[in-house]
Amino acid sequence: MTQWIDACATDDIDAEDLIRFDHAGATYAIYHAPDGKFYATAGKCTHEEVHLADGLVMDYVIECPKHNGQFDYRTGEAKRAPVCINLKTYPVKVEGARVFIQVS
C-alpha cells in the first residue's frame, strides 16, 4: 500500500541542498533542486549505508560524504564510483508550503 507522507516544509531545505527525513523505521533524503523542484530518494548510500544528508548537492547530483560516490537524485542513477547500485527514488508533491513523499 502506498501513501503520501508529509515530510517537511518547503523552506526547511535551502536551494541546492537536502535534508534527512525518517519515517516508520526508514530513512529518506529530500532534495531542493536549483530549479526549485523537490525530489526524494532513499536516505543512505547504496555503497556503504552512509547517510546522504551530510553530503553535497551539486546541481542534480548528490555526493556521498564518505567515499564521494555520486547519484543523480532525480533518477537515482549511480554516476561515480565507488557507487554501482542505483538509489531508490520516491515520488514527491508540493501542496501549499509542504513537501509530501509517496512511500509504500
Partner: peptide
C-alpha cells in the same frame, strides 16, 4: 586503487 582507497576510508 580507486577501490582500495575507498576501503581505506571505510
Amino acid at each position: 586503487w580507486r577501490w582500495s582507497h575507498a576501503r581505506h576510508h571505510t
